[in-house]
């Protein structure tokens, strides 16, 4: 029987939004892995990190409390699973605050009452990579590989928010290995480079482009210097920042970057025999041609 999860897809995954390719490939990946994602009905934005500026503490935490309350009501007994790093972080952080403070929980529930909801704190908030690592495991993941991603050299870019402050159980903050292990499990080569957990600037890519593009440049430069021909990440903002600003970075720093940045869900889909469209490879601004070729074989 399929594993069931209460799914929190997040704003950027929606049709016509910046990580819609993440959702398409996640759905394909889950079909191959026999994972059933039950979307939380009427979920709302988590406030991301930058939401602090306008939202403050309680309104921000109440956003996540509403999602968890809806999940508890409609998908009882299931873990909340997010694909977006910020969605996961905000939800897990909110749960921690709500469960550690009676006052915060009471306040959030007073607000939730206005929407006819109640937060009980019964469900865990997890990231999709945790499901892959902990509930499926690398060994089982490797068994389903039909097309090993042979010859691909991939820089696993973990970034910040799937890694800090919570991270994946048993991994170090400075050098988490799960993404490299996943890449190797799929038959590709994981490149060792020194910018695996460097910040891409996050939301400040919009407000402080110059400072953020320096971060992005360092990440891509290191990936290239260590022989990577693709970058893969578990975070939609890492993906967007590192992929779409390459033209800007090139203009600013005189570089000639043109490296594809994909999601782990796209790699898994292709390795499991999925087509390029199932892996949403048409959603790349910089086409992942080597992966497309493999998918087409």
């Amino acid at each position: 029987m399929a594993k069931q999860y209460s799914f929190y897809p997040g704003c950027s995954s929606q049709k016509g939004a910046s990580s819609s390719n993440y959702l398409t490939s996640t759905n394909s990946m889950c079909k191959y892995l026999d994972i059933q994602l039950n979307e939380i009905p009427d979920w709302n934005c988590c406030g991301a990190s930058i939401g602090y500026a306008g939202g403050g503490e309680l309104p921000r935490i109440t956003l996540s409390a509403r999602n968890i309350a809806l999940s508890e009501q409609h998908n009882p007994g299931q873990d909340v699973v997010a694909t977006c790093a910020a969605c996961w972080l905000a939800t897990r952080e909110a749960k921690e605050r709500l469960d550690h403070s009676e006052q915060m929980k009471a306040d959030a529930n007073t607000a939730l009452k206005e929407a006819g909801l109640v937060y009980n704190g019964q469900q865990k908030a997890r990231h999709m990579v945790e499901v892959l690592i902990e509930d499926i495991g690398f060994e089982a993941l490797g068994k389903g590989v039909k097309k090993p991603l042979k010859g691909l050299k991939i820089a696993g870019y973990v970034g910040c928010q799937t890694n800090r402050p919570f991270g994946v159980n048993g991994e170090s903050f400075e050098n988490p290995m799960y993404l490299d292990n996943m890449i190797e499990t799929l038959g590709a080569e994981a490149v060792t480079y020194d910018q695996k957990v460097t910040c891409c600037g996050g939301a400040l890519a919009f407000s402080e482009p110059e400072k953020s593009q320096k971060q992005i440049k360092d990440i891509i430069e290191s990936a290239y210097d260590h022989g990577a021909d693709m970058i893969v990440t578990p975070c939609p903002l890492c993906q967007a920042n590192v992929e779409i600003y390459q033209g800007e970075v090139n203009k600013r720093f005189g570089t000639k970057f043109n490296i594809p940045v994909t999601y782990y869900s796209q790699l898994i889909t292709v390795a499991y025999g999925g087509s390029a469209s199932e892996a949403a490879l048409d959603g790349q601004l910089i086409r992942a041609t080597k992966l497309e070729d493999l998918a087409g074989k």
């Binding site: 709302n44 406030g47 991301a48 930058i50 500026a53 306008g54 939301a203 400040l204 919009f206 407000s207």
Partner: peptide, 22 residues
């Protein structure tokens, strides 16, 4: 302050309909 301005814009945007309109 650009990040303050962007942060407020982001919050107002999500509050309007409950999800971010990119």
């Amino acid at each position: 302050q650009p990040t303050q301005a962007f942060g407020q814009l982001f919050w107002d945007n999500l509050v309007k309909v409950g999800r971010v309109n990119e």
